[in-house]
Nucleic acid binder design. Structure first.
Length: 213
DNA sequence: ATCCCGAGGG
DNA sequence: CCCTCTGGAT
């Protein structure tokens, strides 16, 4: 895909999505970290329902630690993979208290050392809490990268590295949320809403599949 | 039956 | 590389 086309894609997304930020409710970096860990293979909406109950009761590492695994499970039962997430969150809180003074670390290495935090989650925290130009490749961005021809790749890491190369500098920070929100509401997995998409004539999906009008 | 802001273990 | 974890929405 031509550089000018890529630039136009982000210019249009930036117009269509005036406030490109997370839809995971949070009022601190710690809350964001927990919400992102919980969001694996789950919808933001579902995570927000659970954290609306959890955070008023416990919104610090020490407070969540005090709930214990089984106590925490009661709050996040409605989210998929809740048992492993409860275990990971507790262990992450323990490490935050013991090794980081109860604060969320701001380096990739320290973040990825936390249980339940892989490359994607670390990228979200670095981008959204610490303002770094990282691109967290979740299911939406992986799909879009391949579907519209923006950054094709067999793995999320491959898509991420292509995006970092291809995305114009001024859009690098917002690219993550511009793509996620476009993927969530327009370029959805099952039946993309091509008729209302601002990228139609720039998209390789049309040429490949002749999407329905 | 498929998808959702994946990660860890074998 | 694959498999498993896992509930709720569509």
């Amino acid at each position: 895909m031509k550089a000018a086309t890529v630039r136009e894609i982000f210019r249009r997304l930036a117009v269509a999505i005036p406030n490109p930020t997370t839809e995971l409710n949070h009022s601190s970096t710690f809350e964001l970290l927990i919400a992102v860990i919980l969001s694996a293979q789950a919808t933001d909406k579902g995570v927000n329902i659970a954290t609306a109950k959890l955070f008023p009761v416990a919104n610090t590492p020490a407070a969540i630690l005090a709930l214990g695994v089984e106590g925490l499970e009661q709050y996040i039962r409605t989210i998929g993979l809740y048992r492993s997430k409860a275990k990971n969150v507790i262990e992450t809180c323990r490490i935050l208290v013991e090794q980081h003074g109860g604060e969320v670390p701001n380096t990739r290495e320290a973040l990825e050392a936390l249980p339940g935090v892989g490359r994607k989650t670390a990228n979200v925290i670095l981008n959204t809490a610490f303002g770094q130009p990282t691109i967290a490749v979740d299911t939406h961005i992986f799909r879009l990268g391949n579907r519209i021809g923006l950054a094709p790749g067999k793995t999320p890491l491959e898509v991420e590295q292509k995006l970092v190369k291809v995305v114009p500098k001024e859009y690098l920070h917002d690219a993550h949320h511009l793509l996620i929100l476009h993927g969530r509401y327009v370029c959805i997995a099952r039946q993309p809403k091509c008729p209302e998409c601002v990228l139609v004539e720039l998209c390789e999906y049309k040429a490949k599949t002749g999407f329905m009008a």
